[in-house]
Design a protein around this nucleic acid. Sequence first.
DNA 1: CAAAAAATCAGAACGTGTTCTAAGTTTTCA
DNA 2: TGAAAACTTAGAACACGTTCTGATTTTTTG
Lengths: 234, 234
Amino acid sequence: MSDDLGKREQAKAERRSRIVQAARDLIKETGNTELSMRLLAQRAEVSLSTPYNLFGSKRAVVLAVLEDERDFAKRFRRLQTTNSVERVFAAHELAFRYYTSDPEFYRTLWRALLSTTNEDDSGLASPERLAQTRAIWHGLVQAVADEGHLTPGAEVDLVLQSMAHITGGALLSWAMGSLRTPQLTPSVGLGYALCLKGAATQSGQRLLDRHISDYQNVLSNFGPGVLLRSPETL
Amino acid sequence: MSDDLGKREQAKAERRSRIVQAARDLIKETGNTELSMRLLAQRAEVSLSTPYNLFGSKRAVVLAVLEDERDFAKRFRRLQTTNSVERVFAAHELAFRYYTSDPEFYRTLWRALLSTTNEDDSGLASPERLAQTRAIWHGLVQAVADEGHLTPGAEVDLVLQSMAHITGGALLSWAMGSLRTPQLTPSVGLGYALCLKGAATQSGQRLLDRHISDYQNVLSNFGPGVLLRSPETL
DNA sequence: CAAAAAATCAGAACGTGTTCTAAGTTTTCA
DNA sequence: TGAAAACTTAGAACACGTTCTGATTTTTTG
């Protein structure tokens, strides 16, 4: 009776979390095997219809698993570094540690997101999460500009967009198997550094050079056996 | 009898091309609607099994449509510009003119490639085509380096990789609806320019600055209504 | 020319995501 | 308390990609 959001809503939330948890467990167990909605329903002890009532599609369920798992914003807050440039790369490494710490899991997740057809536009994350991480990254790069490391003519939003493309492209290659897990973080980091340096002042360029050579060294150590895709993807 | 590759092989090639053509027609007609294998077989006047015998999967058929449609290498050869930097962007605009000239078609194609599960690794293009376009782009960027526009320490292959990620990420956003068609080419071009400038010498930076401001101007004209994704895609 | 090899064919079948219907069950509300 | 609203449920159904079978046709080959 003194429930905050009613008994009905509470039961719904409980089913929701049971579904998300079952989905996560199934992905972690079967790994490569794509999880099926029938199996998921069985595991979560709900009917096949229920996930569709509560989430709308398999894609939405997988997305919920992802958002349940990753709490980038929280971890990000306890990030302290000397200058804005260092903070960008600390955030980057923090973000990608999720993927590299459990590659099988996140690769499956990412693949499931890609494979399910997106009738509307939906994108690859919920609007709220999108806005949140976008705000974080905007703040990070804006700080670089505010500290005088970016050319006044450079538009922060456009640099961010290039960085977003690098992220998406790298994760795509990674999910498809063209990019191996140890290369993922440094490859994206190098891309960030190059883009930023392309918009940087001399002081910024100096700070970025160290990261560029660091990432380059890591990547070069993989030797010529590295699988590379041409810029002309299609 | 005097057939070059036997009557049987010839008939196979004929069926192959009929299937590819039917697939292209169906995509061009129905646009948004994903083409179904049953409809495709009916249209190509073959049985449902035949496309699987000849191509192996729907993904492979779509890929064949793509390679049939795009002949980037051929068009690329008659590209003449003053210096290596200009040639990079001329090639870029040439490559993306395919997509922007028939957005519906290529978006559907690109989506079909993403949606079909890739059990092995296969990537997003056939190995031959991949090697070909990769060779072209490697030559383009290597020329920039050879003309002294790139820092000696910069590794061409790694710059190429960043550019490849930008391409993939942008096309992904575009296919998912986050990036609109008029923004596609300038957005990728800006990314290329930033990455290259990040690895460029002063002479190279001067040449790239013009492209950067050009692309920035185009993109700024779309106003603040631009849909942007954060670097933290997931 | 006849046997053998190769490919296509129609059609059924499997598992998939998703939708729908016709019951049940449980909460809400007057 | 009792009616109404909200949800879940089991189960069938649809279209899809893909695989398989057995019969048929066509090309090669000796």
